[in-house]
Simulated scan of single mutants.
Amino acid sequence: MHGPASSGWLLVALCAATGVYCLLRMRSSVEEQRRAAGGEALMGFGMAAMAVPAVVFTPPRWTWTAYAVVFGAAAVRALWASRTSPHHLHHLVGSAAMVYMALVMGSSPTHGHGSSGVPALTGALALYFTGYVLLSGARLVPVAAAAGDPGAAGWGDRPELARACRLSMGIAMVAMLLAM
C-alpha cells in the first residue's frame, strides 16, 4: 500500500488484532461461528500483510500471486458455503476484493504502490464496503445484552464483539481500496 507509513501501521495493527480475535472465536461451541471465524481470521491476517507500508517492505512479485491464489481459494469456499448461509456472500465479495487488490498491486510497475486514477471496480468495491460499514455500524449500536449472565458467554460467542470485528475489517477494506 502507498501513503503515510503511520496509517499503514495502524491498518496492520487493526487487521492483525482482528485476525487474532477471530482465531479466538474459532473456539466457539457453535459450528457456524467457528466456520465464519476461520474465514474472517484469514481475511484479517491477509489484510494485515497487504497493509504493511511499501516504504518498509516491498514484497517480491510472486507474493501477490500467492495472495491471489489463497484468496481465490477462499472465494471458492465462500461461494460453496453461501448456498446454506447468505452471510458467506459477503465473504465471497471480501475474498474477491483481496484477489483484485493482489492482482492490481502485483501488476503495478511500482511493486504494490498502486496506480493513478480510480478504476470502476475499485470504486464499486469501495462503495460496497462503505455501505457494509454503515450497515454494520448501525447493527452494532442496538445489540442487547445476552439473557442471563453476560460473563457466561465465551469470547467466541459474543455477538457484539463479532460484529465489531467485522466492522473493523470493513473499515480497513475501505481504507485499503482508497489507498490503491
Rank of each mutant, 00 (worst) to 15 (best):
H88G: 01
G137M: 08
L24H: 13
T63D: 00
R25H: 13
S108R: 06
L134C: 07
G38V: 03
M105G: 03
L135Q: 13
G156V: 10
G154Q: 00
T130M: 13
G44P: 07
S168P: 00
E160N: 06
R77T: 09
S108C: 09
L79S: 09
P150I: 09
G3A: 10
R25I: 12
S95Q: 04
P86V: 12
R35C: 01
A78F: 12
S107C: 00
S6T: 14
A51D: 07
A81E: 13
G156P: 06
A145L: 15
T65C: 07
Y132P: 04
A48M: 02
M101Y: 08
G3C: 08
L125A: 11
R61A: 09
C22K: 15
R77M: 04
A78L: 08
G106W: 01
A97M: 08
G72W: 09
A102E: 04
Y128V: 01
T122K: 14
V70H: 04
V20N: 06
V52S: 12
A66T: 00
S29F: 10
M1V: 14
S85Q: 08
S107D: 05
M180F: 14
V56I: 12
A51W: 06
T63Y: 04
A37Q: 03
A78Y: 09
G131S: 11
A153Y: 12
S85Y: 06
A37D: 01
T110E: 14
W80C: 02
F57P: 05
V12G: 01
L10D: 00
A54N: 04
P4A: 15
R34A: 10
A48W: 03
F71P: 02
A78M: 08
M47L: 14
A124I: 14
